[in-house]
Design a binder for these strands. Sequence first.
DNA 1: TTGAAAGCGTTACCAC
DNA 2: GTGGTAACGCTTTCAA
Lengths: 336, 336
Amino acid sequence: MSSSDLRKPITARQLARLIGVSQSAVSRAYTPGASISSEMRRRILSMADSMGYSPNAIASTLSKRRSNIVGIVVSAMQNPFYPVLIEKLSRGLQQVGQQSLLFNLTHGADIKQQLAALRQYNVDAVVIVSAAPLSGAALSWATEGRTTIMINRTVPDSGLSSVCCNNAEGARAIADHFHALGRRRVAFVAGVPHASANLERQHAFIERLAELGMTLSASVAGGEYSYEAGYRSALEVGRAGHTEAIFFANDILAVGGLDALRDEAGLSVPGDVAVAGFDDIAMASWPRYSLTTFRQPLDAMVERTVQLVTGKAEPAETSIHLLPGELVVRNTTAGR
Amino acid sequence: MSSSDLRKPITARQLARLIGVSQSAVSRAYTPGASISSEMRRRILSMADSMGYSPNAIASTLSKRRSNIVGIVVSAMQNPFYPVLIEKLSRGLQQVGQQSLLFNLTHGADIKQQLAALRQYNVDAVVIVSAAPLSGAALSWATEGRTTIMINRTVPDSGLSSVCCNNAEGARAIADHFHALGRRRVAFVAGVPHASANLERQHAFIERLAELGMTLSASVAGGEYSYEAGYRSALEVGRAGHTEAIFFANDILAVGGLDALRDEAGLSVPGDVAVAGFDDIAMASWPRYSLTTFRQPLDAMVERTVQLVTGKAEPAETSIHLLPGELVVRNTTAGR
DNA sequence: TTGAAAGCGTTACCAC
DNA sequence: GTGGTAACGCTTTCAA
């Protein structure tokens, strides 16, 4: 118990010899449906327990050709949405016996080189949780035909499946909400301009504005999903004047924007300008911010992803799994 | 290029046969110091490239007995300090050719069962980034004598090495700072009561107060490191009255506390009460909070951890690697 | 320098 | 139900 033994762990073969059974028997004892008498299994497991034996997952991978490892590709995490998503995802995978191997993408560096490691470890599947620009070609090279799921993003013409919140629905809901509040001149603050989620929200929002006869008073891009970008962008929009409401492409932008509008531009929210975000991160519900937002169905998205990874949902059904979100109205869009 | 081939990747043997060399040669081509002619290596690598071959890391693990995988044990992440740490750590490991396998601990569930997977994958080392209660016994069982590093925590009598910020130094610096401001009645807000980092900060702070002849007006425990816990605790302390300064065990508590003090208790910070935290998370520097805090030397901690993992620093030297932090004075402790 | 062959610790298939 | 025996794809002796 107390010894920190550097000697290598006992193998199935040694354990088998110790009990006087075949090594195959040991393997069977650990294989759920295997044909083995319960007496034999009991004996083996009990001996294993007292000898501190547990099967070597790496060796098992080699022979089963399944690693029970999912590669998770992530990038910049200034956006608090991601850590939460990744934690939930990793826990969800763990529950179905899958481990998570993390791959960090560094912006600017050679994608192919960064994803090389992904090929070498026999991951069963790959989940992309990153807004970083990725070509379909690079992806299919890296994943080598393994099941690959993207969360909260799409890559056109890649044939890869995605699990997304209904961004367009959300953006329209925000537009409708602004309209119902009587705000007519509204602005949009983008995050990463070419990210698919950003584009979908932007297009649907602007389209809906037109349908409702509202005016897009300004449209700026923060360049990234961060507090600072939101802060800067809000000041830009604030200067534009006459804006009655701002839709930030996501919550962390909106939070930065709120601070800028109130504390630096001296505007009242929602008095002078209403504000809405997207995601519903924890901060959005902090009393200080109390941010109106469109909630992404995180748990459902993770659940669906896990199903796709384990093959319990048909990837063929639809390439893009669109899950419904929910408008959460808070103080930043209260009546004047 | 465009095909998403489900057929299994080419092996070293196939590649070798294709070129007309031995399989050993292929292996050598990928082994830095191996004795192989540069001509042979060139031929193999070029063929490998055009055939899309790359060595199977799992198989390599089995024969080399090194996986180049580090297990990272994490738990609750409401504290923004952790995602940042984990990202930096994972990137640092990646740079030295190590991958990160994530293990999530769920509070309350059976530790041993949760760490079982850790044993089965042949991780080269284990890094514990979690404040969750862990016994030395459970740990050494799970790690089976592999090098194990804990970040930002210690487990007494475990003999395991830790990389920590100098918590006592930081807590004393905060006390000194409060004293210099002329605040005499000060309070402490704890996070996870029995976490080692929390205890160290608490003890050093209170001790220093005594040395300086200051008064501990209140001491409450939030129970966890979260915004909500900070918010609640601040209200409790606020009611106690006569408190001139509050030291929160970390930044996320302090941020919650600030909102509570200002927006709910109607107190002015730093006018009525000064506030300090610990960590220097991103939020601490947001203009809205501008929180005085003690900065943990994240990069240095990660660097040291990577050195320990790769064996470039002697684990034997000191069991606890104490790295110096830095007091960062901001508006929450400005003069009245 | 190169090739052949013996592991590494499993699983899977085959007889019994 | 059980035990032998090939894989799995690589690294590492050992000879040549």
